[in-house]
Lab assay of single mutants.
Amino acid sequence: RGFLEKAAVKKMAKAIMADPNKADEVYKKWADKGYTLTQMSNFLKSKTAGKYDRVYNGYVIHLD
């Protein structure tokens, strides 16, 4: 289950990176699912340092 969630989160993160207008909708879905910042950090780990920082930081702001 965790692997599928991670894959889904990364897919949506890539969608945000391609079209930032989708961010609020995606952040709301993640918040509704109760994803914590720790979970998001783990889901968005990448071999490329900083690749998903913008998405993660946007989610931090959304939760605030």
Results as ranks from 00 to 15, higher is better:
Tyr52Ser: 02
Asp24Ser: 11
Asn57Ala: 13
Ala49Cys: 13
Val26Cys: 07
Lys6Pro: 06
Tyr56Gln: 03
Ala15Ile: 12
Val55Trp: 02
Leu37Gly: 04
Gly34Phe: 04
Lys51Asn: 06
Lys10Arg: 14
Asn57Thr: 09
Lys10Thr: 08
Gln39Tyr: 03
Tyr52Gln: 02
Phe43Asp: 02
Ala49Phe: 10
Lys14Asn: 13
Gly58Val: 01
Ala23Asp: 02
Asp64Val: 13
Leu37Gln: 07
Trp30Lys: 00
Gly50Pro: 04
Ala31Gln: 09
Met40Arg: 00
Ala49Leu: 11
Ala31Thr: 05
Lys14Gly: 07
Lys47Ser: 13
Met17Lys: 04
Thr38Met: 11
Asp53Val: 05
Ala23Trp: 02
Leu63Arg: 03
Phe3Gly: 13
Pro20Ile: 08
Thr38Tyr: 09
Leu37Phe: 04
Ser41Ala: 15
Lys11Cys: 14
Lys33Cys: 15
Gly2Thr: 12
Lys11Leu: 11
Ser46Trp: 05
Gly34Ser: 04
Leu63Ala: 03
Met40Pro: 00
Leu37Ile: 10
Asp64Gly: 15
Gly58Lys: 00
Asp32Pro: 00
Tyr52Ile: 02
Asn21Lys: 12
Lys6Gly: 12
Lys33Phe: 09
Ala15Thr: 10
Gly2Cys: 15
Val9Met: 03
Val55Asn: 01
Ala49Asp: 13
Tyr27Thr: 00
Lys47Trp: 06
Lys47Gln: 09
Arg1Phe: 10
Tyr27Gln: 00
Arg54Lys: 14
Lys47Glu: 14
Lys33His: 10
Ala13Arg: 01
Thr36Tyr: 03
Asn57His: 11
Asn57Trp: 15
Tyr59Val: 01
Ala15Tyr: 06
Thr38Gln: 14
Arg1Ala: 13
Lys10Met: 09
Met12Leu: 08
Met17Val: 06
Ile61Phe: 08
Phe43Gly: 02
Asp24Leu: 11
Phe3Pro: 09
Gly2Arg: 12
Lys33Met: 13
Glu5Tyr: 05
Ser46Pro: 05
Val60His: 10
Ile61Thr: 13
Lys10His: 06
Gly58Leu: 03
Lys6Tyr: 11
Gly50Met: 04
Thr48Phe: 08
Asp64Pro: 03
Ser46Tyr: 08
Ala15Gly: 05
Leu63Gln: 04
Leu37Lys: 11
Lys11Pro: 02
Glu5Lys: 06
Lys11Arg: 14
Pro20Leu: 06
Ala31Asp: 05
Glu25Pro: 04
Asn42Met: 10
Lys14Met: 11
Lys47Tyr: 05
Trp30Thr: 00
Met17Asp: 04
Tyr56Thr: 04
Leu63Trp: 05
Val60Gln: 10
Ala13Leu: 03
His62Cys: 05
Tyr59Pro: 01
Thr36Ser: 09
Ala23Ile: 04
